[in-house]
Amino acid sequence: MSYVDSDGANRRHTFDFVVKLHNGTRTAIAVKPVAKVESSGIAETVDRIRDQCPRAFADRFEVRTGDHITRNRAANARLILKSRRMRNDSAIAEVRRIASTLVGSVRVCDLLAASRNDGLGFMAVASLIGDGVLEHVGPGRISHNSAVRLGRKLARTH
């Protein structure tokens, strides 16, 4: 992304991610360790790009640090990405059928015991969380002991 710095020099910055939401909104994200935000000048860079950039590239520009992207969030994101690579539509349909009957929250292991209690079942739960059909309740990493509940996508149909 090209921009003009405070001295009038043309500069380029490459964002770490551009996230596109279902509603079409795009957010450009610069990731920096908390300790380097100030010394790198990334906040000023992103502010300049935000002011100068055509909206064709992104609608929002953000700086994210470890305060935003915790180890647990990163681990959960990696799990969801892995579940998408391993996607098994029949396992997902089987778990989703039982999940659609949930009232309140339930532990993942209890959901799996009622549907498909194997690795494909667990990956189906991760896929359903990634798809917004289920929501991971509480902090921490997604595990067999985590609680889940219906997400907005499935709850709307009931």
Results as ranks from 00 to 15, higher is better:
L102Q: 03
E44D: 10
G132I: 11
R97W: 05
G140L: 13
R85S: 08
G140K: 11
V108M: 08
A124M: 08
S83Q: 04
C109M: 14
D131F: 09
A77N: 04
L111S: 03
F61T: 03
S40V: 06
E94S: 14
R60V: 12
V34K: 10
A113D: 09
A113Q: 08
A35R: 09
T70D: 02
M86D: 12
L112D: 07
P33R: 12
F122V: 09
E62F: 03
A114T: 01
V37W: 09
L120G: 13
R73N: 05
R71H: 03
R141A: 12
N117L: 12
A74I: 10
G104W: 04
P54F: 09
S115C: 12
V106F: 07
T45Y: 01
S100M: 15
C109T: 13
R55D: 06
G140I: 12
L112K: 09
Q52F: 00
V106N: 03
S143E: 14
V46S: 01
V137L: 06
A114F: 04
F61W: 11
A113Y: 11
G130N: 07
R55T: 08
S143V: 10
R55M: 12
V103R: 15
A124G: 02
I69P: 01
R107D: 07
V95T: 06
D67F: 06
G138T: 02
F122G: 04
S83I: 11
A114D: 07
I42P: 00
A74H: 00
R73L: 11
S105Q: 15
R64I: 07
E62T: 07
L79T: 01
V34R: 12
A35C: 07
G104H: 03
A93W: 05
A113E: 14
N117R: 15
A126F: 07
L111W: 06
G66D: 08
V34M: 08
F61E: 00
A74E: 13
G140W: 15
P139L: 13
R96V: 05
P33V: 04
A75C: 06
K82R: 12
R87A: 14
I142R: 00
A43N: 06
S100F: 11
R87G: 04
V37P: 00
G130P: 12
R50W: 05
C109N: 14
P33N: 11
A114M: 08
P139M: 14
V133E: 09
G130D: 01
S105F: 10
V133H: 12
T70P: 10
